[in-house]
Design a protein around this nucleic acid. Structure first.
Length: 488
RNA sequence: CGGGGUGUAGCGCAGUCCGGUUAGCGCACCUGUUUUGGGAACAGGGGGUCGCAGGUUCGAAUCCUGCCACCCCGACCA
């Protein structure tokens, strides 16, 4: 049937695309590299967004909104920043269309050329720091803790649903501080917040660390990252938090007077996660039967299926269960479609990854029980209807825990150590995953290792164990192992 | 940007090499009957600018020219 998905072992990339499309998460659109996020996928993104938004606000941040367009001259004010993004910008040059004199629809009106081109934001540091200049004059204006939920455009050469699209949705936090220490603390606070979200809500274990200069955000002093491991052994950068120093304050001349009437540049951070998280979610938990949603991000927790079809006795029990679950904040739905048979529905909801399925038929009702099926393990068993809401409440907790523990074990089993470049390659080609190895600290070696192995330094883990060793490439002395992997 | 592929019904495809009735099949959709504890069966029905623009021809999904779009694999990136 058309709903069948490619096996992971056969073609992981095709499997991924199948899940995204067939579970109804997103689709390719008429525009190159841009996707349509469908209601089911968007519902999960909304859960991600709502939870993060809550966490941002709990830590003192507020939301605002800045323009989609950035004057070209703004972008070039921070030299490294513009260099990092210049190659992937969409540019607005005109503001009007007109009827084609030759009668072929509409064409760009050449008289509507803009004085200065506008860039569709690839990220908003420049427009925001240009605005902050007017908002900050005293230490009393600081810290300024602002986040925005927005879309951005990066004209990528090659795109992949959720993982890398030309337009994507994200949040970007931009904060301003009076001191370096405060800004660094903010950067780390958000890194911890991201890690907590990834592990607690997405059930996706991550490694926190700092990027090497080579992998740093364009314009940052330090880039912190959370790195997750996908089922095919490739790493995914799931979120980044940047300490920007005074780079943007200097570029946009944002200064303040401190308590001692001394003028100084403001210290900055920026941080973001995007719809890429959806890709991480899929590639952490899903299987050959389809998507698997962790209960904490599910827009629907429980699906109730009448067997073989709705009737009065079944309806009554189903509606009672839905009400009891609702009282506990658990969202359940009763599938009353008479056209589809139970087997079809089973497959369909497995594909969509609904955490718990309840089957109710005459056989069950006679024994005053129902069939419970959990999506994560695909186990099925009978359970007394009496008190079912308590059972499901606990089951959802168990599923959430199981997903995390399973993913963590998978990840931990794929953290290896390599002491030579041969060993390093061998591991990448066989079991893949993360490889801890010594590195001499130079960009030159890092780039060379990438050329030789396609693996990059994902990060230098926070609180990394110090250990004397030799760089796997050059043999030069090193004081710690860094985390390598092939990545998305 | 290099290499490969694909554009035909909502989806998946055949037909194109070698031009010729009314463009076909599966899924989905609509109607009906029988079914129903892991993707039902039968009967009937609706749905098409064959990616776009030129050209050749009595006749083009099919041949020629040009263009466009999307997907996949690489190099670059969240």
């Amino acid at each position: 049937m058309s709903k069948e998905i490619t096996n992971r072992s056969e073609d992981y990339s095709a499997w991924y695309t199948d899940i995204v499309k067939k579970a109804g998460l997103a689709d390719h659109s008429a525009v190159r590299g841009c996707m349509v996020i469908k209601p089911y996928g968007f519902g999960i993104w909304e859960k991600i967004r709502d939870q993060l938004d809550f966490m941002f606000k709990e830590t003192g941040h507020v939301n605002a909104y800045f323009p989609l367009f950035i004057p070209k001259s703004f972008l070039s004010k921070e030299a490294e920043h513009v260099e990092g993004f210049a190659k992937e910008c969409a540019v607005v040059t005109h503001h009007r269309l007109m009827n084609d004199p030759n009668g072929n629809g509409v064409v760009v009106d050449p008289t509507s050329k803009l004085e200065e081109e506008l860039i569709v934001r690839p990220t908003s540091e420049t427009i925001i720091w240009n605005t902050y200049k007017d908002w900050i004059s005293s230490y009393r204006d600081l810290p300024l803790l602002i986040n925005q939920w927005a879309n951005v455009v990066r004209w990528e050469m090659r795109t992949r649903l959720f993982l890398r699209t030309a337009e994507f949705l994200w949040q970007e936090g931009h904060t301003a501080h009076a001191t370096k220490d405060e800004a660094v603390s903010e950067t780390r606070l958000i890194l911890d917040l991201y890690a907590e979200f990834a592990e607690e809500y997405m059930a996706m274990p991550v490694i926190k660390g700092v990027k090497t200069p080579n992998e740093r955000f364009a314009g940052a002093i330090d880039t912190y990252t959370i790195e997750a491991l996908m089922q095919d052994g490739k790493a995914l950068q799931a979120g980044t938090s940047h300490f920007l120093g005074q780079n943007f304050a200097k570029a946009f001349n944002v200064t303040f007077l401190d308590e001692n009437q001394k003028r100084d540049f403001v210290w900055a951070t920026s941080w973001g996660v995007s719809t890429r998280l959806m890709g991480g979610l899929i590639m952490t938990h899903s299987d050959d039967s389809g998507f698997v949603v962790p209960p904490k991000l599910a827009s629907l927790h429980v699906i109730i299926i009448p067997i073989p079809k709705p009737d009065e006795a079944i309806d009554e029990v189903a509606l009672k269960i839905i009400a009891a679950l609702k009282a506990k904040g658990i969202i359940a739905k009763y599938d009353t479609d008479r056209k589809k048979r139970p087997g079809f529905k089973f497959a369909e909801y497995e594909l969509k990854g609904i955490p718990v399925r309840l089957g109710i038929g005459k056989r069950d009702l006679e024994k005053n029980q129902i069939e419970v099926a959990r999506r994560d393990t695909k186990e099925k068993y009978s359970q007394a209807i009496d008190g079912i809401e308590d059972h499901i409440e606990q089951l959802l907790v168990d599923i959430q825990d199981n997903l995390f523990n399973r993913a963590k074990k998978f990840r931990d089993d794929r953290i290896s150590k390599a002491d030579t470049i041969e060993e390093f390659k061998e591991i990448l080609d066989t079991k893949a995953g993360f490889v801890l190895a010594h590195w001499d600290g130079t960009t030159e070696s890092e780039v060379k290792i990438k050329e030789l192995t396609k693996a990059t330094i994902r990060c230098i883990p926070i609180d990394n164990e110090q250990e004397d060793g030799k760089c796997i490439l050059t043999g030069k002395p090193s004081t710690q192992r860094v985390l390598f992997a092939r990545s998305y």
